[in-house]
């Protein structure tokens, strides 16, 4: 029944030992990437979506709830940042904090409504709530409707870091990415994270053990929504726009696909997935709406034949002998 067999069966001992090496390698790559000729804007887009997909995975992979409404947090994060920085003249940190706070509040409300049903209903309810936010954004004055918020100033962080400089912006975004990742890592490893995994495996048992299951789910959803809002706000700084695309259901679908292709319930899967999907999108950008067909085909192939995703499959193939129980 479980969506993430990899984390249930535990990571293989050998590969787990190598994890610090992978993390260091990944960090070195990300730190040096702008000097290796990788287009920084592209990388920043990957990092933003990686935060969103990781936050989404916190719900799907570790609680077993599929949210199809994460675009609402992502898009609203972008709008709040755009509005507060452009109209109110807030500095980036203020805009980011407000955007994250608004998304967290929305997550709290969405979560409280959506956890009244579970499983497959949860997906439909979150999607409907996301569509509600979309229609509000279409009509509300602060979003500028179809035009969106354009030319958002990038500003200066704490009066020191001028984000108009692309390299400075890149390292700022990288820092946000690392922050987001650490929050998810801490949440998964915390007593809350362990209890949530218990809910995923056997909810009735956790209830009978006296865990406040409903509150735990809402709390996880709030954390997930807050980080998704942060991701959307960061994206708005990078691209200096906030539009209806950010809040559309297709964006929720992208978070689902990134997690699926990277590996549901793995810490690094959504990051790898974000890299793959953004690469495909920019590679085939000239093909217009064929990209929709390509995304659809990837969805079908992953669901039919590649359910563990890239990272999940790697963990599986590295397995030798009885595996040590560790959650990664």
């Amino acid at each position: 029944m479980s969506l993430s067999d990899t984390s249930k069966s535990g990571a293989p001992y050998g590969l787990t030992m190598l994890y610090p090496a992978f993390v260091v390698l990944g960090l070195v790559f990300l730190l040096s990437a702008p000097f290796l000729g990788v287009y920084p804007i592209f990388l920043m887009k990957v990092l933003c979506f990686a935060v969103m997909a990781s936050a989404f995975n916190l719900m799907l992979g570790y609680v077993g709830l599929l949210s199809f409404g994460h675009a609402a947090f992502f898009g609203m994060g972008a709008y709040v940042l755009g509005h507060t920085m452009k109209e109110w003249g807030l500095p980036p940190m203020g805009g980011l904090a407000l955007a994250t706070g608004v998304a967290a509040l929305m997550g709290l409300v969405f979560g409280a409504i959506a956890i009244r049903q579970k499983g497959i209903y949860f997906a439909m309810i979150t999607m409907a709530l996301g569509q509600l936010v979309y229609f509000i954004c279409v009509q509300a004055p602060f979003t500028n409707g179809e035009d969106g918020i354009q030319a958002i100033p990038r500003g200066t962080v704490l009066g020191v870091l001028d984000l108009r400089d692309t390299l400075t912006l890149y390292y700022f975004v990288l820092a946000i990415f690392i922050f987001g990742f650490l929050v998810i890592y801490r949440t998964v490893r915390s007593p809350l994270g362990q209890a949530l995994k218990g809910v995923r495996e056997n909810e009735q048992r956790m209830i009978s053990l006296g865990y406040p299951v409903a509150q735990m789910k809402v709390l996880a959803f709030t954390i997930s929504a807050a980080l998704t809002g942060l991701a959307g706000a960061t994206k708005a700084i990078v691209f200096q726009t906030a539009t209806l695309t950010d809040v559309q259901w297709q964006t929720s679908g992208e978070a689902v696909l990134m997690t699926l292709i990277g590996g549901i319930g793995t810490l690094f899967g959504p990051i790898v997935g974000a890299g793959i999907i953004i690469t495909i999108q920019s590679r085939f950008a000239s093909m217009g709406s064929w990209i929709m067909v390509i995304i659809g085909v990837i969805f079908v192939v992953c669901v039919m034949a590649f359910r563990k995703g890239v990272v999940g499959t790697l963990l599986e193939s590295g397995k030798s002998g009885p595996s040590a129980s560790s959650d990664t």
């Binding site: 497959i120 689902v256 079908v300």
Partner: peptide
């Protein structure tokens, strides 16, 4: 069951 949902989502996109 969520995989059934994801499959039909992909099919709809195609």
């Amino acid at each position: 069951h969520l995989y059934g949902l994801l499959l039909t989502f992909g099919a709809a996109l195609i």
